[in-house]
């Protein structure tokens, strides 16, 4: 880590080489089962990357490793060039600018939509600040802007528990945005969504790429095709193929182990 005067949260990841995330030779095993097997993955700054793979291919474990929920047995994971993520815990990683959206929407049900965003804002998260904190005008504007982006402005004062499934997913993406992350990890955003909801989600995610780097894990091939520029195929814990959707679909290896199993998508 460089001896800067600024805190890690302020410096942000060093992406002078164009890469925001490096995962090298990462292996994780659970009771002998290799969830990740010598995996190598690089994410460019500002890109929208889709991860696909059959159940058990290691997609969720990969997210767990990046966010600090699971520690790999071997390998290195670095964020920008300077942060070794294996030395940080979940809260620190979140504060470094890596946001994660879970498979199952997990919003704070008892709180209002607005308060869900309020708690997610990028700010000092210590107890003393929280005891005395009032929203500043700028923060109110941030919340209003995010509400507009995720299309929940009119639901701002309703408790999150009454939102529809799709709305909860958007709220969760909004919570990620409130934290002003550099890297967004999005786990199965359209699972259980209606067609029109999925379309809106695709628009939302595409609009976020560029300013943020976005990694999406998704089963729905139609959805992946609609948003992806680069697709990474995972198989048995390592990267099987990487490239554009068309290149992936014509790759014989991929056809054999993935598309072959699930039918031609």
């Amino acid at each position: 880590m460089r001896p800067a005067m600024m805190t890690p949260e302020q410096t942000g990841p060093d992406t002078r080489h164009g890469m925001i995330l490096y995962m090298e030779n990462v292996s994780v095993s659970f009771d002998g089962f290799k969830a990740l097997n010598d995996l190598n993955l690089y994410i460019k700054e500002g890109e929208l990357r889709c991860l696909i793979g059959a159940n058990g291919a290691g997609k969720t474990t990969l997210m767990d490793v990046i966010t600090g929920k699971t520690r790999p047995d071997t390998g290195t994971v670095s964020y920008g060039q300077q942060f070794n993520l294996l030395q940080h815990n979940e809260e620190q990683i979140s504060r470094l600018g890596i946001g994660r959206k879970f498979q199952k929407p997990t919003v704070f049900e008892a709180l209002s939509v607005k308060d869900n965003l309020y708690l997610s804002l990028k700010m000092d998260k210590g107890i003393w600040t929280s005891l005395w904190h009032n929203l500043s005008g700028e923060q109110k504007d941030d919340i209003d802007r995010i509400l507009h982006t995720i299309g929940l402005t009119e639901h701002r004062d309703r408790p999150a528990s009454v939102l529809s499934h799709g709305q909860k997913q958007w709220l969760e993406i909004g919570m990620l945005l409130a934290a002003k992350p550099k890297l967004l990890l999005v786990d199965e955003p359209v699972a259980g969504m209606t067609v029109s909801e999925a379309e809106r989600t695709a628009e939302l995610l595409t609009s976020l790429a560029g300013e943020h780097s976005v990694v999406v894990v998704e089963h729905d091939m139609g959805f992946v095709r609609s948003i992806a520029r680069t697709v990474t195929v995972l198989h048995q814990g390592s990267v099987l193929a990487e490239g554009t959707m068309d290149a992936i679909q014509s790759d014989p290896e991929v056809k054999k182990v993935y598309l072959g199993e699930e039918g031609n998508a």
Binding site: A110, L111, L119, K125
Partner: peptide, 19 residues
């Protein structure tokens, strides 16, 4: 609000960046 959120989903609160 954070305390209520911890009651309902503590791991989510940690992912949002609160200790």
């Amino acid at each position: 609000k954070i305390i209520t959120a911890i009651r309902d989903s503590e791991s989510r609160v940690r992912f949002v960046g609160y200790n």
